[in-house]
Design a protein around this nucleic acid. Sequence first.
DNA 1: CTTCGAAATTTGGCATACCAAATACCAGCA
DNA 2: TGCTGGTATTTGGTATGCCAAATTTCGAAG
Lengths: 241, 241
Amino acid sequence: MNTKAALNKRWQSGDNGLAIERLPAKESFKSRAYAALKEAITHMNIYGSEEPLLLDERDISERLGASRTPIREAVAMLEQEGLLKAVPRRGILVVRRTKAEIIEMIEAWAALESMAARLAASRASDEAIAELRAFFKEFDLNRIERERCDEYSTANIAFHQALIRLSGSSLLAAMTDNLFFHVRAIRHRTIFEMDRAQRSASDHLEIIQAIEARDADRAERLVRDHTLRLARHVESHVNLD
Amino acid sequence: MNTKAALNKRWQSGDNGLAIERLPAKESFKSRAYAALKEAITHMNIYGSEEPLLLDERDISERLGASRTPIREAVAMLEQEGLLKAVPRRGILVVRRTKAEIIEMIEAWAALESMAARLAASRASDEAIAELRAFFKEFDLNRIERERCDEYSTANIAFHQALIRLSGSSLLAAMTDNLFFHVRAIRHRTIFEMDRAQRSASDHLEIIQAIEARDADRAERLVRDHTLRLARHVESHVNLD
DNA sequence: CTTCGAAATTTGGCATACCAAATACCAGCA
DNA sequence: TGCTGGTATTTGGTATGCCAAATTTCGAAG
């Protein structure tokens, strides 16, 4: 039966018999503009100068080969995300976070990641946890090599993201990713300090052990303290404003 | 000195000597459309039917007396926020969350609010904490009266929001507000059950006492368990899909 | 040389028009 | 009656143009 009603119903209800998704035949300009802008902002040294970083709709639309409309929609999305701020008759400026805001972000991150650790300790499969340990080993081996990286330690973040994935909550993953994005943007000499304070391998090992032991309370506490320590470090040693 | 350069610099740097914000002389159509749509979605019984809830750009633009452009920008923002999903040649549909997603939201909420409790216990002024107790008293008195409310207990949410404000972190407040929005949308008979499970006054009192005693660990644990209990309740007693 | 202000320019907000894709409709055929 | 195929319509995506507000420019007055 391929009646129109049935087809319609199938679409409406999702008919999850088949696990395929309607693939976006052609990525819209809006999406592409969004991705391009976010990418550009990612690789921008936001805190490198004091001048306001502002973008120009028309310039962007020309460079991307699209009209202003989809760019404006992409900007609206990034504005909602807190990365941009469109000021009438001024321009679209890249938002700089204050030190206080960054600290709030790290604290929220501590909350989310410690919850992830708790959930991971109580739910994750032994296999998944084992993968985390394998990842940690790799992380430890490449420590010195990656130490040169002038961004906020990629490996370090990757470890934390792996931990969060263990919780099985894609929401926690999405929320922390968003927070990471902002914290990561602080390129600064003191980032090395932060990194050092943050990446103590022993902390990571303890966390893994707690999760392996299915000790949710301990895992949560270790992660929370670990990340809050970073917040306190930023509070006392980083100067942004 | 009111030279142009000085004026310009003042604008550029923000000159935070004065804590006033450039007030948007006339709220843009985009903002108004955003607010109107969000308001509409708020008062929509999203889970009341199985049919896909879809909106029409042109219809909305007519009703709001604006063109499609600002409406599309507002839709893009709400899409970013996860409330809407624009499907090409289909329409703009209001996103329904699965039960699993709702549970993830409550767990994230537990993470954020328990962190807020921790911060409140260690930072909030005695006066602010006292206000929380006063608020609790009022909340308790009006319990029976408000019990009729067929939405997710307003008073209950208000208590939690007051607690979160105590942390002093506007980020935690913003993030939990967003989560509340989605959880609130589940209008369902079982919401009463959730409410009952959630609003035990004794829990609230214990939380206040822990904060007053500056016992951060205890305050955090009480709030976390309190909210995770709701998650477990939803998991076993609410049926959405 | 500085100050002031009016005109030109810039820039985001908004409206409108067009397009392509996907659906809905309907006539015609088996 | 029921299916099929083609056409009309709907609908979101995009381009374009105009507008008002704010800035910048620049020349005239002091």
